Computed example of a mutant assay.
Amino acid sequence: MLDKNYIGHKLTGFSAEANVERLRFFAKAIGQQDPIYTDILVAQKAGYPTVPLPPTFLFCLEMSAPNPAEVRDLLGIDWGKVLHGGQSFVYHQMAFAGDRLSFQGQIIDIYDKKGGALDFVVIDTRVTNQDGALVAELRKTTVLRNI
């Protein structure tokens, strides 16, 4: 079982820039064909200042953390026993290419199920822009198989 004393632990915060080249690559990778996500002029004609971030791109940027394995290292989790338990996003405002986004994650829950056969780690991450405005709240759940 994982150490529940880590509930409330803040992860190392970091910032990442959403650049248009990376957004184009992401849009292509997910099959996004709407040109507002790849073409600055099309985005501007649609009323945006520049290319907006596709909704799930924040998860991609979150992987830019200095140590994406920080939670696994902190809790001593064996990578071979990890399952993706889920993720969700709550958006407060749009983000755009060129924005500098700051990520601050925190472990908000650790619990087990099936008599300890499965451990769950829930992490909430606040994402703010270069002006300090809240852009989104991300939640991800990691599952550790103990069998």
Rank of each mutant, 00 (worst) to 15 (best):
Q130K: 07
S102I: 02
G116N: 12
F25K: 09
K10T: 10
D34M: 14
I108H: 00
L61C: 10
L41R: 07
T38F: 14
K81H: 13
A65Y: 15
V82W: 11
G31A: 11
R126N: 15
K28Q: 05
N146I: 12
A97D: 00
D131K: 06
A65T: 11
A18W: 06
V121W: 13
V82P: 03
L134S: 02
L118D: 08
S88A: 14
L134E: 01
Q130E: 09
C60S: 14
N19Y: 00
K28M: 00
S15V: 03
V122F: 01
Q33T: 13
D112H: 08
G80N: 06
T56N: 06
G47I: 01
N19P: 07
M94T: 02
A43P: 00
A133F: 05
P55C: 07
L53T: 02
Q32A: 09
N146L: 14
Y111H: 15
Y91A: 05
P55F: 04
R126L: 15
K113D: 03
I107Y: 05
V20H: 02
I110A: 05
D119V: 02
A43G: 02
P68G: 11
S88T: 10
D109F: 04
F89I: 01
P52N: 01
V51Y: 06
M63N: 09
P55E: 00
G98S: 04
V122P: 13
Q106T: 12
N129P: 08
K140Y: 05
D78K: 09
L74C: 11
W79V: 15
D3L: 01
L61F: 07
G86R: 02
D99L: 01
